[in-house]
Every structure is written in C-alpha cells, then in structure tokens.
Design a protein around this nucleic acid. Sequence first.
DNA 1: TGAACATATGAACACTTATTCATTTGTTGA
DNA 2: TCAACAAATGAATAAGTGTTCATATGTTCA
Lengths: 113, 113
Amino acid sequence: MEKETDAMHGDDFAVVREKLPDEEVLYDLAELYKIFGDTTRVKLLCILFEGEMCVQHLAELLQVSQSAVSHQLRILKGARLVKYRRDGKTVYYALADDHVREIIECGMEHITE
Amino acid sequence: MEKETDAMHGDDFAVVREKLPDEEVLYDLAELYKIFGDTTRVKLLCILFEGEMCVQHLAELLQVSQSAVSHQLRILKGARLVKYRRDGKTVYYALADDHVREIIECGMEHITE
DNA sequence: TGAACATATGAACACTTATTCATTTGTTGA
DNA sequence: TCAACAAATGAATAAGTGTTCATATGTTCA
C-alpha cells in the first residue's frame, strides 16, 4: 500500500511539475503582484489612468509627502509600469502601457463580485 | 498666473477624484494583490490549477514545511481564493473559482512580454 | 479509549518594506 | 552665478510579514 501510494504521488508530482511555470517565472510573477499590493502604488496607478500627472500633484491628490510619492514612483519605474517625461523642473508620470490597466481591472472584478 | 494654475489643479483633481474608485475598493484591491505577492502562495495557486491536492503533497511539492503551507493556505482561504474539503484525516484544497486563474494569467502576460 | 496520523494554530524571530527627515541633484529665471 | 523650486535619494525607524518550532485539534482504526 505504501509503495503504491508513493508511486501514485510520484506520478502526480511529475505531471504537476511539468505543467508548473518555471521557478523564475513564478518568482517574477510574485514580484509583480507585490508592487500592486500597496495602497499608495495602486492609487498612483489608478490616478494615472486619467492621464499623466506631475509628482507634486500626485502627492497632493494622495495626501502623502513628495518624498513618499517619489520613492513609490521609483519602484513603479523599476518595474516598467510607469514612464516619465521632464518638462523644465517638473516631471510628468504616465502609465507605461495598457497591461497595467488590464491587471488592475482584472483584480477589480474579483473585488466587486 | 498662480490663481489660474490653482484653479486648473482644482478642476483636474475634481475630475480625477470623480473617476477614481472608492478608497475602500482601492484598499481591498491592494490587499488582494498582496496575497499574490508571495512566491509560496503563487506556487500553491498554480499547483491547484491542475486540480485539488492535500496539504502534505502541497508541502512536498513546494519543499516547505507542513506548517508553512498550512499558514499560507489559511490566508488564501481567508481571501476566498481556495476552497477545501475534508476526507478523513486529509484535507484537499482547490481553487475557489476561475478568477484566480484569470488574475495570474493576466500577470503572466506582463512577465513574458 | 488511546495510539497514530493529518492539519491547524500561536508565539517568536528574522526579514522586508513604507514612510519620514534631511539632503542632494537638476532646472529655471533674475 | 545665484536664489527658488521640483524631484530624487540615503539613512533611520516603525510596522508588517513569512517561516519555524512547539503544540493543539480533529479523525481513523485497532
């Protein structure tokens, strides 16, 4: 019985392991979601749905310090979720692409079900 | 000029605030993504794509302790991302619905682009 | 009932992370 | 060039999180 059970597990494991994404992909996936897992960052991204905005205004809208926003924007930038352009002294941030929108909308569906 | 700028900001803010999801929704959204933002949990969910599995086997597949898996399953259960059924001494976990699959696939697209 | 097994849970610890504060970098206009 | 402003950054701190270890709960079978 024990032998049979072990064999069965072996097979199951092999099948599942085969279909499972690579360790690295799963790690990157978790890292991506980690970025969305913060209220400040999610708010930033949602605000940018409406178009580009400068750091100061983002801070005002979010009611957090300029420094805090800047730190978070750095993280979003690092994950290529936002892009930016400089116009004189001010820097305008915008969504990098529509993936961001899709990901957030996908999560929204689960929330508002 | 300063007055005009302030007025503009006021309008912008009002427009953006109007379209922005409620504070509570954004909080819940971040909480949801926070759950996906851990390698162990993402792996658990991906494994469950292939069907239900008991705690012990999940632990073996993930190479983590039974306790660790159990703790993480508790979190997934709390977020209604997984469901479970008891059969004797063993408990089998499975995905709660297809939302989970969609959310993970959505993130995958961003990774593998 | 009690031994054996599967799972769940609580406390503790190490590690990560978001914000704040102080400072620096970069840009404009006088 | 220098003062004023916008944004970025580094260090420090406080709060949150995942794992481990020990133990409890729940179930089966002798």
